[in-house]
Amino acid sequence: MTLAAPERAMPTEPLLYRVSDAMRVLSMSRTVIYDLIRTGRLRTVNEGRARRIPASAINEYIALLEREAGEQK
């Protein structure tokens, strides 16, 4: 008798986003996303020749915006 390996629960949200997906998630244009990447405000990783944005980087960017908003008060 063989035992089946336990199935891992797949995350409901992607861990890596394409630029087009990040555009939708952040409601920003392609140009703005690439400007954020170029200036280092939005972190990316390379998967082969493709540039991907980790979900954690999107969360970090949102936290950065919240901190900046708090400093302006």
Rank of each mutant, 00 (worst) to 15 (best):
Y34A: 03
L36N: 15
A9T: 08
P14T: 01
L42H: 02
P6F: 04
I33P: 04
T31V: 13
R30Y: 15
R8F: 07
V19T: 13
M28S: 04
I37N: 04
Y17K: 06
M28E: 06
V25Q: 10
S20A: 15
R43Q: 14
S56I: 12
P11E: 05
V25I: 14
M10D: 06
T31R: 15
A9L: 13
R49F: 11
S29D: 11
D35W: 12
E7Y: 11
V25Y: 09
L15V: 03
Y17T: 02
T39H: 13
S27K: 15
P14W: 04
M23W: 09
P54A: 02
R43P: 01
P54C: 07
P6E: 02
P14G: 01
E13I: 02
M10P: 00
L36E: 15
L36P: 04
T44C: 11
V32T: 09
R8S: 06
S27T: 13
R8C: 05
I33N: 10
S27M: 13
I53E: 00
Y17V: 05
L42P: 07
T31F: 15
M23P: 02
M23N: 08
E13D: 05
I53K: 04
S29T: 15
S29C: 10
R30A: 11
T44Y: 05
I37W: 09
I33W: 14
T31K: 14
A5S: 12
A55Y: 03
V32M: 10
A50T: 08
A4D: 12
L42I: 07
E13N: 02
Y34H: 15
E13L: 10
R18G: 03
V45Y: 13
Y17F: 14
A22E: 12
V25F: 10
V19F: 11
V19D: 08
S56W: 07
R41Q: 09
L36G: 05
